[in-house]
């Protein structure tokens, strides 16, 4: 099986199969964290690191992994990288960690990471797996940035804590329900762009090859 080109792999994670807006995975932390752009950005970067490291590890180790225990081993790999990222963030970025520390630990349970390891990295060579990890990580980061900035702007009238609109236009946006509304609206926007470009709507699930 020949692997798709680097551009295709990365664009797929960013747009065609964006983990949040296309696959609707990891919505819970996405909603919980994106009350401000800063928080979203930080979790996005943490997920990006864990996704790339985990995809690469799964791809490197796949000749040694007994298929019967691949899922426990994948979980172990994710847990390993999450713990490492968690400790490094806590040590070198204490101010940031104070904000997102709670959610960094939750990355262990992110469906998107395990799903990319199982669907892609365990079947593909190292380089495409790395690109796939980068693409999906960037896709999640993009989702965090879009949702975070939109919610912060609409809910608190600011971006990165800098006031843009002196009032709070719609407080609902920073509440949990507002998170789902925002993500839903961006999802609709993604679908609309696809329709405009004359593409068939994707039904989600994630590419296998």
């Amino acid at each position: 099986m020949s692997s798709p080109s680097a551009k295709v792999l990365i664009m797929r994670g960013l747009f065609d199969e964006n983990p949040v807006f296309r696959l609707a995975l990891s919505l819970c932390p996405a909603v919980a964290v994106t009350t401000s752009l800063k928080n979203g950005l930080l979790l996005g970067v943490a997920v990006f690191c864990v996704q790339v490291l985990s995809s690469v590890s799964a791809s490197v180790l796949k000749p040694f992994i007994n298929p019967r225990i691949r899922l426990p081993l994948f979980v172990l790999i994710v847990a390993l990288w999450v713990s490492a990222v968690d400790m490094i963030l806590a040590a070198y970025f204490p101010a940031i960690y104070a904000q997102v520390g709670l959610y960094v630990k939750l990355i262990v349970a992110f469906a998107i990471i395990l799903s990319r390891m199982e669907l892609f990295a365990s079947k593909n060579p190292i380089w495409p797996s790395t690109l796939d990890g980068i693409g999906m990580g960037l896709g999640f980061l993009l989702a965090m940035i879009l949702t975070g900035s939109l919610r912060e702007l609409v809910g608190s009238g600011s971006i990165l804590g800098i006031t843009i609109i002196p009032t709070k236009p719609l407080l609902l946006a920073v509440l949990p329900a507002g998170g789902f509304f925002t993500i839903g609206l961006i999802m609709a926007l993604f679908n609309w762009i696809d329709l405009m470009r004359g593409k068939k709507l994707s039904s989600g699930g994630g590419a296998h090859g």
């Binding site: 172990l76 490492a84 070198y92």
Partner: peptide, 17 residues
């Protein structure tokens, strides 16, 4: 192996923390 890696990261980061 995972425990070894984590132990090493812990040893490196704990004093900073």
């Amino acid at each position: 192996i995972s425990a070894l890696i984590l132990g090493w990261v812990y040893m490196k980061t704990e004093p900073v923390k």
